[in-house]
């Protein structure tokens, strides 16, 4: 097993994240999962959008793509379809993925394109200093929800499942071993996989909502969640208000790039005498 730091651009550490921010914890779990699976560094492309969580890719020693706000999955779709042999991983946040990038998220799930998406959900927009996000629970505070959030939150896992993702799981920055295990499974799924990593923003979410610092937030997350296996054995009243963690959904469906390539090879067999000009595609082909 390689050292975790071998996967980092060490000269860029320490990160810009605030003390106690959970994004680094999630990044660490992802790296350990990659290491465990023995994936080739040169074959991984990490894509992110904009926000605190999206800064993660800049510290990692892969081909990394830090894109525009909300568009990580769309960029990743281009990378994956262009070179299906690459392992494409998206690191995104709740605002980046579910608000501005919601459309790309559901359509990638619908296509079942082989992209592993890690959504770091800290229930708030951290980079812009604490506005409420699509996952801020109803009634909680943000700098743009000074009287409590009037809106209701998305359940990202239910959303991904309904849209057609073939692997959906949730863990937290408290349940780190579970998180690592679920990311490992997500990376192995051939299709669109989503791991929602609930994480803490002590600087804005914790402070604004008077929950406290990183430790208090982690306890708050721990108390607010229940493992899906344990929940199955509990009566409904004991599960109420708790967020389920663990593997939430798994299904089998043809993967998009594989289906596309299958169609392409069929078409090519039919049109193998096509003479649309001297192409030169071979120069850049896989």
């Amino acid at each position: 097993m390689a050292e975790v730091l071998d996967y980092f651009r060490k000269e860029r550490l320490p990160s810009i994240w605030c003390p106690g921010c959970g994004h680094g914890t999630v990044t660490g779990a992802l790296i350990r999962a990659i290491d465990k699976l023995g994936l080739d560094k040169n074959n991984i492309v990490m894509v992110s959008g904009i926000g605190c969580s999206s800064r993660a890719v800049g510290y990692l020693d892969f081909d990394t793509l830090h894109t525009t706000h909300g568009r990580a999955i769309a960029f990743a779709t281009g990378v994956k379809l262009a070179k299906p042999n690459l392992k494409v991983i998206v690191m995104t946040g709740d605002g980046d993925c579910a608000a501005i990038g919601g459309n790309h998220f559901i359509h990638a799930a619908r296509r079942n394109i082989d992209i592993t998406t890690i959504v770091m959900n800290n229930n708030i927009y951290g980079m812009t200093s604490g506005q409420y996000s699509p996952t801020t629970p109803h009634g909680m505070l943000g700098t743009t929800a000074p009287y409590g959030n009037v809106e209701y939150a998305f359940d990202l896992c239910e959303l991904a499942k309904a849209a057609g993702a073939t692997y959906v799981a949730r863990a937290t920055s408290y349940h780190v071993t579970l998180l690592e295990e679920l990311i490992e499974k997500a990376l192995q799924n051939k299709g669109f996989s989503v791991v929602e990593a609930m994480t803490q923003c002590p600087t804005y979410f914790g402070r604004k909502n008077k929950i406290g610092g990183a430790v208090e937030l982690l306890n708050w997350i721990k108390d607010g969640t229940i493992n899906v296996k344990a929940a199955a054995a509990l009566p409904p009243e004991k599960r109420e208000g708790k967020i389920l963690i663990g593997e939430l959904h798994r299904s089998e469906r043809p993967e998009y790039t594989a289906s596309y390539l299958e169609m392409t090879s069929k078409v090519q067999r039919t049109y193998n005498d096509y003479k649309g000009g001297n192409r030169g595609c071979e120069l850049n082909s896989d």
């Binding site: 793509l65 990378v79 379809l81 262009a82």
Partner: peptide
């Protein structure tokens, strides 16, 4: 976005 992603792989 997808075009830019594909271009980054050399296409």
């Amino acid at each position: 976005a997808a075009c830019i992603g594909a271009s980054l792989t050399g296409k």
